[in-house]
Design a protein around this nucleic acid. Structure first.
Length: 535
DNA sequence: CGGGTTTGACCGGCGC
DNA sequence: GCGCCGGTCAAACCCG
């Protein structure tokens, strides 16, 4: 509850400040904070008896303030440089991945023409789902890579993830000319197209435990309708975003029929305005989830599972990574990360839907296994075929998923560590842990190269199914993926933020005991700063 | 009184 | 073509 009020306090009123700090990257904030201090200090020596010493102190204070400001400026500069570097790395790696994907496609095309056609079909299906694509058929390889690039951009636009990195990176990729600075026409274009094809927008469904009627996601919503939907006695509420009057974003809120404490929130559409920080967290999560789905839609890796049942959670590759253990029959085993449960699934309805399962429950949700360790179940359930997605250069990351039970995996400065309780359903625990640790000790560059190599290897191995990877490979692959994909890190962080928030609403709030609760975004993912500090 | 919610009516897509 | 169902509209209502 405290969290909710805090979030709402930091709601839309904060947008202005964030926008301001975008240009100055925090300079002004510091100036504003410091100037009253210096002002009050200045008034002291006028009344004081020893004016010279006080003046000296005043000068010292001013000098300190100046030094601090310059430090902040330097830090801002460092961050900018780091940001640029990340963007460059992102572009480079995306080109790499595209080349690899092209090679894979070419290699497998003569073997698996039918499947490739299916992939292309499904790729276009997802493209349509965003409502942002021209419907031109793309038959050549170049066209397909352009599709992927466009998909990536459209997802980020269509699902509200409008961070400067991804946006500018995709802009650079798509239009190398420097004339892309104007964002407004692009958004208008996107909105126009999406309005042209409103029935095929991708939706992002967020499942989270929440006592409140709606999930507090940082945006302002106005309820415009309520319906009893079939198969669920709980009414479904329809909300419209009211942050901007013309914002087309809508969300549906409904209680889960199996567990009334679970709130199912489905987002649809594109915000045509800046988002508050708390809203960008959720938008980031949904965008990352959707991008995982989307990027999993057009690869030459594919599951043997037919894209049949609409809502069945099945095992599939995640960016070429199978996060499921080999099936022992019915129950899929999952990759336990830490406290919150995060799953990503998709359904193939009229709206392709990505589901972020942020519930932290012992109660099995959908068809997942029980979750004795409150582990973060990380899996995809995609009816689309996976893809070798563009990878960001893995920056030096500190991704800490420490739970209250202290059984957690954590990334710190590019190294993965695992503390406390192990993997529950695993006999090869030591192998896994050693594998993880070995993996974690690799420099990030080596990790990337090894990943690329493995990708090439995997490209030559025909995929018989989605459960062919060994468990250590699964963990390693998942680890690599998470490390390498900042958007997914954002997703996880947003999920954690959301979980922490809902946890508070459930009366689990303690005054700062929770290690994650008071952590800021940058504390969770100080990737840019930590990397820069290494220089 | 303005803004948000409620709720019945209406519309369009889809399956039979 | 018909009916079901999800989604939206808009008038009435509520609340601060």
């Amino acid at each position: 509850m405290e969290f909710d009020s805090e979030r709402s306090d930091h709601g839309c009123g904060e947008v202005k400040d964030e926008r301001r700090s975008d240009s100055g990257v925090g300079d002004e904030t510091h100036v504003i904070k410091e100037s009253p201090m210096t002002n009050t200090k200045r008034t002291i020596p006028e009344d004081g008896p020893s004016a010279s010493t006080n003046k000296k102190e005043e000068v010292d204070e001013i000098e300190k303030a100046k030094a601090k400001m310059s430090e902040v400026r330097e830090e801002n500069e460092r961050l900018k440089i780091c940001l640029n570097r990340v963007m460059n790395d992102y572009r480079t790696l995306q080109v790499h991945i595209q080349n690899i994907t092209q090679q894979e496609t070419q290699n497998s095309s003569h073997k698996e023409n039918n499947n490739l056609e299916e992939i292309i079909k499904e790729s276009e299906l997802v493209s349509l789902s965003l409502g942002n694509f021209p419907s031109n058929p793309r038959n050549d390889e170049k066209g397909k890579t352009q599709v992927k690039e466009k998909e990536y951009e459209d997802l980020s636009l269509g699902l509200d993830c409008k961070f400067e990195i991804s946006k500018s990176a995709t802009e650079h990729l798509l239009k190398p000319s420097p004339e892309n600075s104007s964002e407004v026409p692009k958004e208008e274009e996107v909105d126009e197209v999406s309005q042209e094809n409103p029935a095929k927008k991708t939706r992002v469904c967020v499942r989270a435990r929440c006592d409140t009627p709606t999930l507090n996601d940082g945006c302002q919503w106005r309820k415009y309708g309520q319906k009893i939907s079939k198969g669920n006695p709980c009414p479904r509420a329809y909300y419209r975003c009211t942050v901007a009057p013309s914002c087309p974003v809508r969300k549906q809120v409904q209680r889960c029929v199996q567990d009334m404490s679970i709130l199912i929130t489905t987002y649809e559409g594109t915000h045509n305005h800046s988002l508050p920080l708390s809203a960008t967290a959720m938008a980031s999560a949904t965008s990352a989830a959707a991008s995982m789905l989307l990027n999993g839609s057009s690869t030459s890796h594919y599951s043997s599972m037919p894209p049949s049942s609409a809502t069945t959670t099945t095992s599939s590759d995640l960016h070429g990574l199978n996060l499921y253990l080999p099936n022992d029959g019915s129950k899929p085993k999952q990759f336990y990360l830490s406290h919150p449960t995060l799953s990503i699934s998709s359904t193939s309805q009229s709206h392709p839907t990505v589901t972020l399962d942020l519930t932290t429950s012992n109660i099995p949700l959908s068809n997942s296994t029980s979750d004795p360790n409150f582990g973060a179940r990380l899996f995809t359930s995609s009816n689309y075929n996976p893809i070798t997605r563009p990878l960001l250069y893995p920056s030096s990351t500190s991704l800490n998923f420490t739970s209250s039970e202290s059984n957690a995996m954590s990334w710190s400065n590019g190294f993965l560590s695992y503390n406390g309780q192990p993997y529950s359903n695993n006999n090869n625990r030591n192998n896994i842990l050693s594998n993880i640790n070995n993996l974690g000790r690799q420099p990030m560059e080596n990790m990337y190269h090894s990943y690329m190599q493995r990708n090439n290897i995997n490209a030559s191995i025909p995929h018989q199914g989605t459960t062919q990877h060994s468990m250590p490979d699964t963990i390693a692959a998942a680890t690599k993926f998470i490390i390498a994909d900042p958007s997914f890190q954002s997703s996880l962080a947003a999920a954690l933020t959301s979980i922490i928030g809902t946890g508070n609403t459930q009366g689990n709030e303690s005054s700062g005991e929770d290690s994650g609760k008071n952590k800021k975004w940058g504390d969770l993912f100080p990737s840019s700063s930590s990397r820069d500090n290494n220089n």
